[in-house]
Write a protein that binds this DNA or RNA. Structure first.
Lengths: 244, 244
DNA sequence: TCAAAAGTGTTCTTATTACACCCATGG
DNA sequence: CCATGGGTGTAATAAGAACACTTTTGA
């Protein structure tokens, strides 16, 4: 990039598209918008917004996420940029995809117009999206799969107190595989990153499970020491799954 | 993204910035441009180009890589997009960073104006880059580090015939660590992805090394079976290095 | 004959896998 | 007392890490 000359400008727009993941009832979900108008009327789409002239990309993602969900300080990461010439019927729109992880029970619908049409859709049912949003979702889901094996981001999707089974189901939903209960617990507990709260579930029709919380302070210390959070068991299973 | 309205447009430009890696003399290098004019005159910068109105982002990256190096069919991957409001002094410029891996001895300087100022700079010496190119380079280098552990991209940087020591040095340069010679060979050879060419180096003042080539066909077959290329030894070492 | 890099195996330790039964609660 | 999910350990296998000497060539 030497100098900006006018040849470099053409009629175009930047947007951010948010892939917002949540976890509920053992199911990984994504927050989608039911489109009320053409193009792609009636189909699901990702919430997308223009980037403003005076804001950075990350700022735009944070702002729009808050506009939609009311949540701040959320895990959010840029994934990829989609700029196909014909990806938007109205003109050249280049979009930067971000994905975020939120605790679904902290989400409250905001009074924006777009939010009126927002719904949590199971990742399994999120098919036939508008524009190239299917590709975008796929890229973000793949990134999440990758990330979850090397960083403890899963906790972003769970309530502050959770059971080991909930945690396992979360990993199973993200990795799209089954995990062995004993091995999973052994591995997770051996990291010493969970605090046993010495509390149990109440009102369940079976032996109540112990509740844990994630020890973020300890994790940050370990990170500084070069600690690598890693779930191995999942690796091979993922490879098996790739066969399909 | 509902409809394009004019509020979404402002004076801005898209560019792609190419981080082009090569490997030579045991050193990982990146192709940089010595800037001949302000801003950042005299500093190193990444080769960057405007995205044309009628081309996709990937096409822009491929096109500009060829304009600079004369090479086609090169490993190339999008890494991240940088869109800080003030990243470019002349206006809002959002750039999509790509990194590519080329065989440095196949590179021939092309007669474009920018190429006249291109030079291979050791990754260790690539400091104080223009704009936010330091951040971009770092992001791409990190991506390469990640990728090299799970996919056999290293071969893209080596000549078609190489020795195991050259391969090891490449990994050491990328991972910024030392590897054990015996363990490295054991691991690499156990994957059965190298074809022993039954040839040896000539004219070296020591025992000549055997030459190998990468068995791409076999790798593609294995990939289809969910095979995961993985170098384990490096993992812990990287963690140690993160301490610095 | 020397310098320089190539080539080669074994042992120890750690991580991963597979696997089945009893426990606590609510209905 | 039954259904439901919670909770626990061990043994076999596989992978990773540490480590030192001999070989081949050109100069």
């Amino acid at each position: 990039m030497t100098m900006i000359n006018l040849d470099g400008f053409f009629k175009s727009a930047f947007t951010v598209d948010n892939v917002i993941f949540g976890f509920d009832e053992g199911d990984l979900k994504v927050l989608l918008i039911k489109r009320g108008e053409e193009p792609f009327e009636g189909q699901w789409g990702l919430p997308g917004y223009f980037v403003k002239e005076n804001e950075n990309l990350d700022q735009a993602a944070v702002r729009t996420l808050e506009e939609l969900t009311g949540l701040r300080k959320v895990f959010l990461e840029q994934v990829a940029t989609f700029g196909g010439v014909d990806r938007h019927p109205s003109g050249r729109v280049i979009t930067v995809a971000y994905f975020s992880l939120i605790k679904i029970n902290q989400y409250t619908i905001q009074p924006s117009s777009i939010a009126q049409h927002a719904e949590w859709v199971s990742i399994k049912d999120a098919k036939n999206l508008a524009f190239d949003h299917g590709d975008i979702l796929k890229a973000c889901f793949n990134r999440l799969k990758l990330l979850v094996r090397t960083r403890p981001v899963g906790f972003e999707l769970l309530p502050p107190k959770f059971t080991l089974t909930e945690l396992q189901h979360l990993y199973e939903a993200i990795l799209e595989t089954d995990l062995d209960k004993r091995n999973f617990r052994k591995k997770i507990l051996s990291m010493n990153l969970l605090i046993d709260l010495d509390e149990t579930q109440e009102g369940v029709a079976h032996r109540p499970a112990r509740l844990y919380k994630f020890d973020k302070k300890k994790y940050d210390e370990l990170l500084a020491d070069g600690f690598s959070f890693e779930l191995k068991e999942s690796r091979r299973k993922i490879a098996e799954h790739l066969q399909n």
